[in-house]
Design a protein around this nucleic acid. Structure first.
Length: 293
DNA sequence: CACCAGGTATGGC
DNA sequence: GCCATACATGGT
């Protein structure tokens, strides 16, 4: 089964693939020569999709499963943030003498999302305060054991573990994978909050961004950085800024916006010029840190 | 052997 | 509210 999505202005499939392929060993998608494959769960049923590009269309091929077409289209649109109009963002970038190169260099790069809120929160917990290579290793070990596995044409595809599975784990289950005690506690506690229904994407969607941040930060293990990261990547709340983010600070420092690591106040004043596009600005700043291939 | 990595909780003032 | 510190572990 194959269908297509028209490619809008200011969308570059290649830029998006580039970001997904940043030299990290991400177990949740597979970059091929000119396509990306991903296992998604639709009501717990594994669906394997392949996304490529042809003549101003994204081509989606269902390699396994028989899902409703619209569900898959909606997933891809959300993952690649396809329906966003970037005109205003590029206008703002253009006005910044240190960042305006991004309009041409990264043109068409979209904020790649993590549509599953539980996965987004877990991933940001895993990534706290450790280097990204190790974080991807932890995610892979965790997913290989507790996630959904699907074999197809000599490759293995994975979907992130469900909250139901994680909520039943004990800290000791995760320690051999080299999770710290704290990370293990945090992940299990967050899973329980999802199982109990205290947190869900639907619930947070009803809240303002400030309310959603407060709600998330009440959970042990979720601080300001994690809450903003999750809302940015999962709910696409574009006004989120990952305060406390070392990567963000380094990016701003490297672009000579600040002679040393900026304070919170300096960050706030920097973002005044990117009102309503803060998350996209953060995302492009992260992009600027990536090592050129 | 230090110091850092896409932080957070905790306790002291 | 703002600061220091512990937390764990791999990479450089």
């Amino acid at each position: 089964m194959t269908f297509s999505i028209p490619i809008p202005p200011n969308f570059s499939f290649q830029e998006c693939l580039w970001f997904l392929d940043r030299n990290y060993d991400d177990c949740l998608h597979e970059i091929r020569e000119s396509s990306v494959r991903k296992l998604i769960l639709v009501q717990a049923i594994p669906i394997l999709i392949d996304i490529s590009e042809k003549e101003q269309n994204l081509i989606i091929t269902i390699l396994e499963g028989n899902p409703q077409q619209q569900i898959v289209i909606d997933f891809v649109k959300e993952w690649f943030d396809i329906e966003r109009d970037l005109t205003d963002f590029y206008h703002l970038l253009h006005q910044d003498s240190d960042l305006n190169y991004m309009v041409t260099e990264y043109k068409g790069l979209r904020l790649l999302g993590i549509p599953d809120l539980f996965e987004a929160l877990c991933w940001s917990i895993i990534g706290q305060q450790i280097n990204l290579n190790f974080a991807y290793k932890l995610k892979r070990r965790f997913t290989e054991v507790y996630g959904t596995t699907f074999h197809f044409q000599n490759s293995v595809y994975y979907a992130f573990p469900s909250c139901e599975v994680v909520a039943k784990l004990k800290v000791e289950d995760l320690l051999p994978m080299q999770f710290s005690n704290r990370k293990a506690e945090y992940l299990i506690e967050i899973a329980k909050q999802f199982v109990d229904g205290n947190i869900s994407k639907a619930k947070l969607s009803e809240l303002s961004t400030d309310e959603a941040l407060k709600k998330l930060i009440q959970v042990r293990g979720i601080g300001e950085w994690t809450a903003n990261y999750a809302l940015m990547k999962s709910l696409k709340r574009l006004e989120c800024i990952t305060y406390g983010d070392v990567g963000l600070y380094n990016a701003l420092h490297c672009l000579k916006k600040f002679p040393k690591r900026p304070s919170r106040g300096e960050i706030e004043s920097f973002f005044i010029n990117f009102k309503n596009w803060e998350a996209y600005t953060v995302f492009y700043l992260w992009r600027s840190l990536a090592i050129p291939q």
